[in-house]
């Protein structure tokens, strides 16, 4: 049995090709040919599905490994930033555009960070006094990592830096991105270190819940000149209350 690789297979060979594909032994070009065929070749697709089902018992051989803490935030930023852009027209698109721009710079700049905001909701009720704890973290040298703690009873959002942020010629501005067609709302300029507390205005407090996005952008010293985010977003994260 020598090479019969290029489109000469049929019948019983179909099952072998499907098996080779599922095992993963084929070179890239052949894998891609199989994947292209899978879109409209239902017989081949069924053969692949059969192998995947039958060999899945071997998945027990894979152990578990802990991924970096920032990975989920990166996934969310990619999926939901893209969704916002395709939705278009939104007045806070600039925040997402700058995020995409930043992403395309491939972690090259000091702003190389997507924050991960995990709102660990201790209590079942958002109005309870238990604080919400959030971490905006980056994984690159020189990136900004912040710990945020929101006390719903006082409306105070306390931010504590864990690692140093970007160089000092910019201000860090914290934004609430409410979602939908609503523009980003400034929650204030953070001190250069990232350390500080933000008094969340009373009318905004009900909006601190599931589905809101927080972002930190780099702005000219003193903050955005026009009340909208203008600089690159160096940290962004979504609030979840799922646990």
């Amino acid at each position: 049995m020598t090479s019969a690789d290029d489109g000469e297979r049929d019948g019983g060979d179909m099952n072998i090709l499907a098996g080779e594909y599922v095992l993963g032994v084929l070179p890239l070009a052949e894998r891609q040919r199989v994947e292209a065929r899978l879109r409209d070749d239902r017989v081949l697709a069924a053969a692949v599905a059969g192998w995947e089902r039958d060999l899945s018992a071997l998945n027990a051989e894979y152990g578990e490994a802990t991924p970096p803490a920032s990975t989920l935030a990166k996934v969310e930023a990619r999926l939901f930033a893209a969704a916002s852009v395709s939705a278009g027209r939104s007045p806070f698109m600039s925040i997402w555009n700058s995020l995409l721009l930043w992403r395309s710079l491939a972690f090259a700049s000091v702003a190389a960070l997507i924050g991960y905001l995990a709102l660990a909701d201790i209590s079942a009720s958002p109005s309870a006094n238990a604080p919400l704890v959030a971490q905006l973290s980056g994984d690159k040298e020189g990136s900004l990592t912040l710990l945020a703690r929101y006390d719903a009873s006082s409306g105070r959002l306390q931010l504590t830096p864990i690692s140093a942020g970007p160089a000092a010629e910019h201000s860090l501005e914290l934004w609430l991105v409410p979602g939908g067609e609503n523009p980003a709302i400034s929650l204030g300029v953070l001190p250069q270190t990232g350390e500080g507390a933000v008094e969340v205005p009373a009318q905004l407090r009900p909006r601190l819940g599931e589905g809101v996005t927080f972002a930190v952008s780099l702005e000219p010293l003193g903050g955005s000149p026009d009340g909208k985010p203008t600089g690159p977003v160096i940290a962004v994260g979504k609030a979840h209350q799922t646990f």
């Binding site: 490994a65 991924p67 209350q241 646990f243």
Partner: peptide, 30 residues
């Protein structure tokens, strides 16, 4: 979107284990 975070927390160690085993490089696996 909340379900994504939940699913991630549930299965990411297993899937990261798969990526690590095959790619044998932590950065590529991430």
């Amino acid at each position: 979107r909340a379900a994504l975070a939940q699913l991630y927390n549930t299965v990411s160690p297993k899937l990261f284990g798969v990526c690590m085993r095959i790619l044998r490089d932590r950065s590529d696996a991430e």
